[in-house]
Design a protein around this nucleic acid. Structure first.
Length: 846
DNA sequence: CTCTCCCT
């Protein structure tokens, strides 16, 4: 098409003007405007560039190569002259190259090597709205780099280009950068909201495939052209294919499209079919931005997407299925209008559309931050808040990243990179894999290590064994492979060679079995994912990770039948309790005695086992929460055991001990004197007793082994040791256990109340005008005067007043009810007694 | 009812 038709031309003068006046700008332009090719080319002759290079970032390799190809073609040159591209796997540039299109990860690498970016005049962030963690990091570091190393005479300009992003937020971040907006160019797309029938509403996501199949049949019948269907994942794609089986007309052809398909099958899905057949492509998000399918006029959007979310609690990444954001629904619909006017079925209601999030969650908010963390530490930034972010990394994930780096031995207690950490930061891979590479170098196993790191960096084809030793043999060609996996094998081998370049060769190779070595290297890199076989049922085998979590694997896998595993990848679907093992290798546990000894800890376990109800003493070798070895400790020092038991009682509280009535009273008696008299009476409060356990209880604990032994403790006797002479004798005088009453017997005092209670039958107190007291008369007892049925008739601390007043009332009422007991008119002159009238008469000789 | 996409 003629290039002067491109919508971007209308706003190019404004953009050039803005960049001449400012050091930053935001360009908002929808797909099809022509920004990716026209903008870099139009900047070439700008005077402020002073011959420096233009760098443009693309989120994908294909996109970078395509952009470079199109620009070179417009200049009538081959790629690699004025316009070139650069990415990890491929470089096509020359000394004449002025425009370099690069993939996003490279910028961060460059900044680490040369923070001044001395030969670069402008960085263009294309497709910024995708908000990959690499883009966000690249922008944050570029902003700081130019603040530190560049000035107005030597500017580093930044241009952010975006399709659907809310431009205002990014403009604010960029020091109020001017925003230039361009029109897009595409054909109109007619949107039809077509929610599933009510019956399915509120059901699980997987039911959507029934409605999806129905919609496909309807669209094929009512419309012309090929169909692109967006589904959240492979499972839904396969289920939909099953529903559709033999239900569509003969001139149609169904095809799945997702990232785990071999390149050939992906290619088949995106190109026009032969024989004029209508194509129905069932795709994941891969077709939203990365791949364009030819001839599509109908889009069916199931309205869901599946995205990873790092869980800082488990250290694992899980997949969540959720409604796609409005920006994503627009992007998907746009796929129908690239060649001619199209139609888009949205399988939800128009009302629900407005409730969807405007934009998808940026990757930086949900990703494993370990790679970002080591990058920033290497950059000299210990706290992300020192940099400017559109969305700052979440602190829980950042903390987890620091923990991981510490576990890997790459940072010290002050969060500074160790020498190993500095070397690690220079490898272009996840810090765990970088450590794996260094360990491989140490064992003289560069090839094995670099291949393993490459396997774990690349996506492993579907249906391959989960055993990394098997995958390793496939990757190196030691075992024959499925021809469809050739491309994967080549990519792994190329990446492995690249990794190996950063390693130095040792002459001596450690003499380990191949599988053992793989397990060992993985254990170094993923120490908290070392796992021990826990239990197995008919379907799954469960392993326990060193971090305490449980993971499972199908019992059909060979890996399910080995006692120890080194796990590299595990994860799952959110909502499921147990994560699934995706990539692992058997671990030879003899390494715990040597190479992996640094990960283990010796713990002397001396504690009360609540379940067994007994004291146990063990010497344990542990790897995190996994017990590698345990041995009963026979010669445990007395102090250790005493300490453990005291700890138990402190945790459980005093009630755990076998308190007798006498002991409880004893405590209450001393406490009463402590509060009434004070010195020299000590406090026997709960806290005080807990604090003095060492003095009164500790000496008697050494023979305790079981719960029954606790019952044998004589606490009353032991508490006595807290009372020095002559306090025990004085206690019996000042706070006696019992007191003599008029009837002639000694009645018990209950010290569990304050003041203490003397509960006696009313008739036993006849003749007693003075309320009984203790502690040299300082404490009057609370007298409970009881009926013959032991019910309190009166509670008083003033007996004289009772006899003179209230007694007459009580008498009136009780005389009828208890006629056999004495109810004299003058209780003060009556002989006190516990007996009935008849017994009294008999005693008196009648 | 075995896992989205991508990159140094």
């Amino acid at each position: 098409m003629p290039k002067n038709n491109l919508p971007i031309f209308d706003c190019l003068p404004k953009l050039l003007d803005a960049l001449a006046q400012h050091d930053q700008a935001v360009l908002q332009a929808p797909p099809g405007a022509g920004k990716t090719t026209q903008v870099p080319l139009s900047l070439l002759e700008q005077p402020w560039l002073k011959g420096k290079k233009i760098i443009m970032l693309e989120p994908r390799r294909v996109a970078a190569i395509n952009a470079a190809n199109r620009m070179a073609k417009m200049l009538g040159e081959p790629v690699g002259q004025t316009v070139g591209y650069r990415m990890r796997q491929a470089v096509n540039v020359s000394p004449h190259t002025r425009i370099e299109v690069i993939t996003e990860g490279l910028l961060t690498r460059w900044l680490q090597d040369d923070p001044e970016l001395s030969d670069i005049g402008i960085i263009i962030f294309d497709e910024f709205h995708e908000r990959s963690i690499n883009t966000d990091t690249g922008l944050a570091l570029s902003l700081q780099a130019r603040e530190l190393f560049r000035d107005s005479h030597n500017p580093l300009k930044l241009l952010v280009m975006s399709a659907t992003l809310d431009g205002a937020a990014i403009a604010t971040l960029l020091d109020d950068a001017p925003i230039i907006t361009s029109q897009g160019r595409s054909y109109p797309v007619d949107t039809i909201y077509y929610p599933p029938p009510k019956k399915q509403h509120g059901q699980a996501f997987n039911d959507i495939t029934v409605h999806v199949s129905h919609t496909i049949q309807k669209a094929v019948a009512e419309q012309t052209g090929s169909v692109l269907v967006f589904l959240p994942g492979v499972g839904e794609i396969n289920r939909t294919l099953k529903h559709l089986h033999n239900t569509l007309p003969n001139n149609t052809h169904c095809q799945p499209l997702h990232g785990n398909l071999p390149l050939k099958e992906q290619q088949a899905a995106i190109t026009q079919t032969d024989h004029g057949k209508r194509k129905i492509v069932l795709a994941t998000d891969i077709a939203e931005t990365s791949l364009t399918i030819e001839g599509v006029r109908i889009v069916i959007d199931a309205g869901l997407c599946r995205s990873p979310s790092f869980d800082p609690n488990t250290g694992l990444t899980r997949l969540h299925t959720h409604n796609n954001a409005q920006s994503s629904t627009e992007q998907r619909a746009g796929r129908a209008g690239r060649m001619e006017p199209g139609i888009c079925y949205r399988l939800w209601s128009e009302a629900a559309q407005h409730q969807r999030a405007k934009h998808a969650t940026p990757e930086i908010l949900a990703a494993d931050l370990t790679p970002l963390c080591i990058t920033l530490l290497h950059w000299g930034c210990n706290n992300p808040s020192e940099l400017t972010w559109l969305d700052a990394p979440p602190s829980a994930n950042w903390q987890q990243a620091l923990n991981t780096l510490q576990l890997l031995g790459t940072i010290d207690d002050n969060q500074q990179l160790t020498p190993t950490g500095k070397r690690l930061a220079n490898f272009a891979c996840h810090p765990r894999l970088a450590l794996l590479l260094l360990k491989a170098e140490h064992y003289g196993a560069n090839k094995l290590g670099s291949t393993l790191a490459a396997i774990l960096s690349e996506r492993t084809p579907k249906h391959m064994d989960a055993n990394l030793a098997t995958i390793y043999r496939a990757a190196t060609g030691l075992d024959t492979i499925n021809p469809a996996h050739k491309g994967w094998q080549q990519r792994v081998q190329q990446l492995a060679r690249q990794f190996a370049q950063g390693l130095s060769a040792k002459k001596v190779t450690a003499d380990y079995d191949e599988s053992d070595l793989i397990g060992l290297l993985l254990a170094h890199a993923f120490p908290e994912r070392i796992a021990k076989l826990k239990n197995t049922n008919t379907q799954n085998t469960v392993f326990q990770l060193a971090n305490g979590r449980a993971v499972q694997i199908s019992t059909h896998e060979h890996l399910a039948h080995t006692p120890w595993l080194s796990i590299a990848e595990a994860g799952g679907i959110a909502g499921k309790n147990t994560d699934t093992i995706y990539a692992a290798c058997p671990l030879n546990n003899t390494f715990f005695n040597d190479e992996l000894k640094y990960l283990t800890k010796q713990n002397t376990l001396a504690q009360w086992d609540d379940k067994a109800g007994r004291f146990i003493a063990e010497q344990r070798t542990q790897l995190g929460k996994i017990i590698i070895q345990q041995q009963t400790q026979t010669s445990l020092p007395k102090e250790v055991k005493t300490k453990a038991l005291l700890e138990l009682i402190k945790n459980k509280g005093l009630d755990f001990l076998p308190w007798s009535h006498e002991a409880t009273q004893f405590i209450a008696r001393v406490n009463l004197l402590h509060t009434t008299i004070g010195e020299p009476w000590p406090s026997f409060s709960h806290t005080a007793l807990l604090n003095t356990l060492d003095d009164w209880l500790a000496p008697y604990l050494s023979n305790i082994n079981t719960l029954a032994d606790f019952k044998k403790l004589h606490l009353l006797q032991q508490l006595h040791s807290l009372l020095p002479w002559p306090l025990p004798q004085e206690l019996d005088i000042l706070a006696p256990i019992s007191i003599a009453i008029p009837s002639g017997r000694n009645a018990a005092i209950d010290y569990n109340n304050t003041p203490p209670i003397l509960a006696v039958k009313l008739q036993e107190m006849f003749g007693c005008a003075q309320t009984p007291s203790i502690a040299n008369g300082q404490i009057k007892l609370t007298v409970h005067l009881l009926s013959p049925a032991q019910k309190p008739l009166q509670i008083t601390q003033d007996l004289a007043a009772f006899w003179a007043g209230g007694y007459q009332e009580v008498k009136k009422e009780m005389k009828g009810r208890y006629p056999r007991h004495p109810w004299p008119d003058d209780p003060l002159s009556m002989q006190a007694t516990a007996k009935t009238k008849r017994r009294l008469q008999l005693d008196q000789g009648f």
